[in-house]
Design a protein around this nucleic acid. Structure first.
Lengths: 315, 315
DNA sequence: CTGAAAGCGCTTACAG
DNA sequence: CTGAAAGCGCTTACAG
C-alpha cells in the first residue's frame, strides 16, 4: 500500500481496485487519518479556500455580503475566510501576503485607498483577485462595481422632484478621487437640471462621521433642505445630527443614503436609499472568481451592476 | 550561499556574518523573493495566523468584537482570519478542519450547538481552542464566558423594581440546555423574589426571530408587561412586534436585551440592556490564546467576565 | 491497477 | 560562521 494509492483514494481518482479502496478507507477511518492540506497545497498551489477582504466589518454592509459570498463559494466545495483591512493599505498588504502565501484559490477585495499598485503586484505573483468598486486593468484582476453614478443621479432626482433645491452631499473621506463616483453622479444630476448643487463635505463613512459631517455641512450652508449621503450608516448619523440640531427629517431636511442595509428599514424615519444589492454583488463576484479559478485565462470583462432607488420615509 | 544561510537571514537568526547578511538581503530585494509560508508551516506546525469563528456575522455583536480581536492579535505579529458557521455543526467542522490543517496557531470559537465533542476532537489533534460562552474541560481548550446568570438577574430585578410583574422571556432556540444560562438567571431572579415568572419562548436570535417570538409570547400571555430578550437584535424585533400590535414600549411593555450593540443606542426607544463588553471579551480571549501559544501547557482556568446593566429608554 | 522515486520550498539537527 | 543532508506530508510523472 503505497502513498500513491492512498493519495488516489483520498482524492477520489479513478484506477484503483474496489477492494483496495475499501481497505484504504477502513484504515483511514481507524487511524483517524486526515490529509495534511498544507502539504497538498504546497504542491498543487491550490488550497480550496477563498479570501474575502473588506475594509470595515463594522459597516453593516459587509457581514450580510460576506454571508452571501460564503454560500456561493461553498457550492464549489471551498471554504471562505474573511479579513479586514481597516482601509489601511499596509494592513491590506499583510492580509494579502498571508492569503497569497497560503495559496488561496483567489481573493475578493474591497481595496484600501491607494492600493491599486499593491494589488497589481499580487496579481503578478499569481494571486487571482476580484476587486470591488474600482477598475484596474491588469491580468489576473477582475472588477465588479455598482453603477454609482446612476445611483447618485437617482437620489438627486428624487430630491429635486420633491421640491428640494439646496442639496448638500456627505461624502467619504476614504474615497480617492478616481473612486468618487457618487460625487460625479451628484454633480452630473445638477448639471442635467441646470441647477447648482450645495456643498460637498467628506467625513469617515460611519455613524459618527455622518454626525460630524452634518455639523460642518450645516455650518457651511445653514439653509440646506436635503442631503445625499455616501452610505446608510452616514445617513443615519446625519439624521441624528439633524434632529439634534432641532430640525426634522424629512420635513426640514430630507436624507438619502446608499446601500440599503437591513438597519435602514428599522430606523426611524426609515431611510430612503439607493440599494446596492448584495445578493447581486455576491453572485457576480463569485462568478468572476470561479471563472478565474476554473478557466485558464486571466482576463475578465469588468461588470457594472445596476442600482435601485428605495423610497421610504427620510426623503 | 546555502538555503540554510538564507533561512537564517530571513528569520533574523543569530550567527551570520554581516557581509553575508547584506548580500542575502540584496538578493532577496532584487529577486522579489518571498518565503513560502506554506512550506514553513509544514515544518514548524505554526503559521502566524489565528482564526476567529463566529456563529453569525449578521449579528452586530460579532463584527466589532472581531475588529477588537484582530487588533489584539496583531500586536503579536499574527494576522487573524474570520469564519462563520451559521450555527451549523457541520459547517463548523469544515471551517475548523481548514483552519487546523493550515496550522493556525489557534482558534477562538463561538461554538455551534452540540459541537463540544467536535471541539474536543480538534483539541486532541493539537488545535489550540478558546471557547466562548461554554465550558468544556479538556486539555487544549480554554473557556471564556460572561456571567449571564447574574446578567439575567440584573435585568429581571430592574423590571421588578419598576413595578412589572408579568415578565416573559424571549430565549434563543439555538442554545442547548447547558447553555441556557440567561434562562437560569431569569428563573432564579423570580425565585429570589418569591414571584412567578411568565412564559419562556424560544426563537431564532435575530430581529425576525424576536418578532415571531413576541407574537407567540403575547398569544400565550396577553397581559405581559415586560420582556427579557436573549440579545439586542431580538429585543429590537420584540419592540417592533409589540408596537405593530398597537402597544407601546416601555409604557405598556418594557423590554430588556443583552449585548449592548451600538445599534441599541440608536434605535428608538433606545434599548435598556445587559452589556456584554466586547473590549473585555477580546482582551481575555486573546490572553487565553496567547497563553496557549507561548506557554508549554495546555490548561487554562476558565474565566468568567462581569456584566453590567445599561438603563436607557425601553425599560 | 499499484509501487518506487523525485520534488514542492522550506527548517532542523549535524558537521566542519 | 556556513554548508550538505534529511525530512515535513503530500502529489506528480514514470515504470511495471
Amino acid at each position: 500500500m503505497s502513498a500513491r494509492t492512498v493519495s488516489r483514494v483520498v482524492n477520489n481518482e479513478y484506477g484503483v481496485a474496489e477492494a483496495t479502496r475499501k481497505q484504504v478507507l477502513e484504515a483511514i477511518e481507524e487511524l483517524g487519518y486526515r490529509p495534511n492540506l498544507l502539504a497538498r497545497a504546497l504542491i498543487t498551489k491550490r488550497s480550496g479556500t477563498v479570501g474575502l477582504v473588506g475594509g470595515d466589518m463594522t459597516d453593516p454592509y459587509f457581514p450580510a455580503l460576506a454571508e452571501a459570498v460564503h454560500h456561493r463559494v461553498s457550492e464549489s466545495g471551498r471554504t471562505t475566510f474573511f479579513a479586514c483591512t481597516g482601509n489601511d493599505p499596509h494592513r491590506q498588504d499583510m492580509v494579502l501576503r498571508s492569503l497569497w502565501s497560503y495559496a488561496v484559490d483567489g481573493v475578493i477585495v474591497f481595496p484600501a485607498p491607494d492600493s491599486i499598485d499593491q494589488l497589481r503586484g499580487y496579481a503578478r505573483l499569481g494571486l487571482r483577485i476580484v476587486v470591488v468598486d474600482d477598475v484596474v486593468d491588469a491580468p489576473g484582476i477582475a472588477c465588479v462595481r455598482f453603477d454609482l453614478v446612476t445611483g447618485a443621479r437617482l437620489g438627486v432626482r428624487h430630491l429635486l422632484d420633491s421640491g428640494r433645491r439646496r442639496v448638500g452631499m456627505l461624502a467619504s473621506e476614504l474615497s480617492p478621487p478616481r473612486r468618487r463616483r457618487r460625487e460625479s453622479g451628484f454633480r452630473a444630476a445638477f448639471d442635467d437640471a441646470g441647477l447648482d448643487h450645495g456643498a460637498i463635505v467628506r467625513a469617515p463613512p460611519t455613524v459618527q462621521g455622518g454626525e460630524a459631517g452634518i455639523d460642518r455641512l450645516l455650518d457651511l450652508q445653514p439653509d440646506l433642505d436635503a442631503i445625499l449621503a455616501y452610505n446608510d450608516v452616514m445617513a443615519i448619523g446625519a439624521v441624528r445630527a439633524v434632529e439634534a440640531r432641532g430640525r426634522r427629517v424629512p420635513d426640514d431636511i430630507a436624507v438619502v443614503g446608499f446601500d440599503d442595509v437591513e438597519l435602514s428599514a428599522y430606523v426611524r424615519p426609515a431611510l430612503t436609499t439607493i440599494r446596492l444589492d448584495r445578493s447581486l454583488l455576491s453572485i457576480e463576484v463569485t462568478r468572476a472568481l470561479h471563472s478565474f479559478i476554473d478557466a485558464p485565462g486571466d482576463r475578465f470583462d469588468p461588470v457594472v451592476l445596476p442600482v435601485e432607488l428605495v423610497v421610504r420615509q427620510s426623503a
